[in-house]
Design a binder for these strands. Structure first.
Lengths: 224, 224
DNA sequence: CTTTCACATATATGATCAAAATTAAACGGG
DNA sequence: CCCGTTTAATTTTGATCATATATGTGAAAG
């Protein structure tokens, strides 16, 4: 039950879906910076896709808040204002701790072990100072838990929140390295093993609060 | 500074944007029932638009949860499960009362009067038993407040929640008429005038809870 | 009941048109 | 004469459409 290579898995999907996922990952894992413009033609070359699939991927990501129409019908990665960051902070704290706790209903030793394995990969990336790996495994950690929760609507909203948050977090990571980044994951895994909802909620709240605070500081200093 | 007629306003937009808005309104205001299938070709005729704009509108609305891909590549309006309704209920109560209260920061006598005017139209629709008018003005009421709140990210999430909720609410309205539908709007307007955040939050919580409860009952009875 | 074939539908391409940005040139004030 | 502004030409980019391809659906035949 090994995971097939990424490109191999994408081959079997319709082009618009594969294009969407590749572009989404570019936003999530730091290939696109806040404020950066994207063009349809540029993406057709970079993603080796036709114009129609690229346009549809852009529409979807725009609807999810990962991209933004400008007045002049160009598209770019949104730059967060301080007010918008507070909106994100509220929504993340209002939804994601709850969503994480929903996973306890369905968690099994196997599924918890899977989450723990991702946490181990995350620790490796942190130790190596691998910013891109940190972002990728941090995302995988939280959404592996959301998969267990089996709550598609809340997970979709969380996805949108991460898409809006990721580019700014990427900038912060690049500045401060991986050492000072949030990692309450060990506590979270322990709470899952103990089936302790309160401790799990607290770990996730602290994890998110730390990340938000880092972005808040960078934003206040005009570094984003 | 008069508002142009709706069709006139849509004329000036790119076709894919106008198509998106028309299709969105069809979902919001009850022209499409839960489970109903939509085809690209059918929409090109109904919306008098080309194939490309329709496809892009469908992609956007799918990302917002208003439509859903099926395993075969057809598209339909999602049918809520009981579990998904509870997800929606949680998210609505976690976000929308807060978002409503944010409006108090920016509310002016003029903007409150505008909200009150919509409430009057809503009452007229209720008195007339006009289900479509109820849905439309109820939406306008809440989103007029969200406009005042000036919180684009939370408002976008609320939009997605309404898109997911509306088709089921439409079914309920058609069954029970307009008399038993939630209307804590008078209390909400009064709370806004009094700048009373606690009363405002309470009015909105009760308003949403009533609507959710109606859908919950209908869903439990298999009427949706 | 399965296979096959025809039809309906979705997917994807490339061409064409329209709009906007960019560059280049012309102009005028200092 | 120089610099900033405006205006015109070029080029890039986005929007839309017509069409070709691929896929899934359903009906008819074996």
């Amino acid at each position: 039950m090994d995971v097939p290579a990424i490109d191999e898995a994408l081959e079997k999907l319709p082009s618009h879906e594969a294009t969407y996922r590749r572009l989404r990952d570019m936003v999530l894992f730091g290939e696109l910076a806040p404020g950066q413009a994207v063009t349809i033609q540029g993406l057709t070359e970079k993603l080796e896709s036709g114009m129609t699939p690229v346009r549809e991927a852009i529409r979807r990501l725009t609807a999810e808040g990962a991209l933004e129409f400008q007045d002049n019908r160009r598209v770019c990665v949104p730059r967060l204002t301080a007010a918008q960051l507070e909106e994100l902070a509220f929504a993340k704290l209002a939804l994601e701790p709850h969503l994480t706790c929903l996973a306890l209903r369905n968690a099994t030793p196997q599924s918890i072990a899977h989450v723990a394995a991702i946490d181990a990969e995350l620790d490796t990336a942190i130790a190596a100072g691998d910013v891109s790996g940190y972002l990728r495994h941090n995302y995988r950690f939280h959404f592996a838990i959301y998969d267990i929760a089996d709550a598609p609507i809340l997970t979709a909203i969380a996805q949108s929140l991460w898409l809006r948050f990721a580019p700014s977090l990427r900038v912060v990571c690049g500045r401060i390295g991986t050492d000072n980044l949030p990692d309450q994951h060990t506590e979270a895994v322990a709470a899952m093993r103990a089936n302790d909802a309160d401790a799990l909620r607290q770990a996730i709240i602290e994890d998110m609060t730390q990340g938000i605070q880092q972005v808040r500081l960078a934003l206040a200093n005009g570094k984003i």
